[in-house]
């Protein structure tokens, strides 16, 4: 625990806050900063009511809401195959998986809300194109094998990224990640299993699997973000104990993991330059097309327009339902209050 002189909640925010003297405000801010610095030094956790630097709050809000948006938009390419899943068991698994993703979105929006922004506002930013989400979901899921490749590679990359986030310095984010990672790990195994079944199936099925792996390989590697020398925010995030490993470190680790597993699948990765560097003891991969990454990020990917339109459509179609629920809740609350007055 922090020493007694350090306060985690430097004064309750009150209506009278603006009446505090400048000296008092400065003192509270200094106390808060001292506590925050100590938490960082101890590698401990900041909770929502603790003081935090505005930039820390902003960074987390951006990262967690982007993460939530990715879960929500990420439902679409897989939901696209629920109706056509080739067996009832696969249909059930896929449905459960997409449902999990909605659940991840919910935890993450809730975690982000503790930083002071309501879910509606975050959703609105997404629909207005102001907020980003993982670019990978702007690629189309063309065949059933994509359900395998997305589970194995995309969820696999997500896990590699997210396991260290379980130790993120912001409490609600770290705790949400623990649960998310457990489910993601299950998702990855189901993706692997789909590919395994396909690669041991008919020649056409095996080809379908290989083509999906080929298509998702580079986008999955790019999920870790730009190379370290081109990742301006990484350094600060690492100083704040949000990020624990650099983009390239995580990416290389992921390549090594895939190299082992792809052999079991009896498939190949579409990259002839993958090798284990004996000197650095690290995996290396071939060059990635970062120009394409930036194109998709800028909104010029195959499905950017489609994904956002689908989200807007669902949101707009549901407006009257949300209004009805809010209205009903208000009426019920009023009735309850009247009952209590009468009693």
């Amino acid at each position: 625990m922090a020493s007694q002189t350090l306060q985690s909640v430097p004064g309750e925010p009150t209506a009278a806050q603006h009446e505090l003297s400048l000296e008092e405000l400065a003192r509270r801010e200094a106390d808060g900063q001292a506590y925050f610095d100590k938490v960082m030094a101890d590698d401990s956790r900041i909770e929502p009511r603790d003081w935090m630097p505005p930039a820390y709050r902003k960074t987390l809000l951006r990262q967690i809401s982007q993460h939530a948006h990715s879960e929500i938009i990420g439902m679409q390419p897989e939901a696209n195959w629920i109706s056509r899943a080739p067996s009832l068991k696969r249909k059930a698994i896929l449905m459960a998986k997409v449902q999990d993703e909605a659940g991840h979105g919910l935890y993450l929006y809730s975690a982000a809300e503790t930083l002071g922004q309501p879910r509606d506002a975050m959703m609105q930013d997404l629909m207005d194109g102001k907020a980003k989400y993982s670019s990978i979901f702007n690629y189309p899921a063309r065949t059933w094998a994509d359900m395998g490749a997305i589970g194995w590679m995309v969820d696999g990359a997500a896990i590699a990224n997210q396991v260290p986030l379980c130790r993120a310095s912001f409490g609600p984010y770290g705790r949400a990640m623990v649960r998310v990672c457990k489910e993601e790990s299950f998702h990855q195994r189901q993706g692997f299993e789909i590919l395994l079944e396909l690669s041991h199936g008919t020649p056409e099925q095996k080809q379908m699997a290989q083509e999906a792996v080929n298509r998702w390989y580079a986008p999955a590697l790019m999920m870790f973000g730009p190379p370290d020398d081109d990742s301006p925010n990484s350094k600060q995030s690492m100083a704040w104990n949000i990020k624990r490993f650099s983009n390239d470190e995580l990416r290389n680790r992921f390549v090594g993991m895939m190299m082992e597993q792809v052999r079991v699948l009896e498939l190949t990765l579409p990259d002839k330059d993958i090798r284990f560097n004996e000197e650095t003891k690290k995996w290396e991969h071939g060059p990635l097309d970062w120009a394409e990454f930036h194109e998709v990020l800028a909104g010029r990917g195959p499905c950017n327009a489609q994904r956002l339109e689908r989200r807007r459509e669902a949101h707009d179609d549901g407006t009257w339902v949300r209004e009805a629920a809010a209205q009903y809740a208000a009426k019920q609350a009023k009735k309850q209050a009247e009952k209590e007055v009468a009693a």
């Binding site: 929500i72 439902m75 679409q76 939901a79 629920i82 449905m95 997409v98 449902q99 909605a102 659940g103 979105g105 919910l106 929006y109 689908r310 459509e313 669902a314 179609d317 549901g318 407006t319 339902v321 949300r322 629920a325």
Partner: peptide
């Protein structure tokens, strides 16, 4: 309805 519901809670 999954990914098209009026609220995230209803998707679930």
């Amino acid at each position: 309805w999954i990914s098209r519901a009026p609220e995230l809670e209803e998707d679930i």
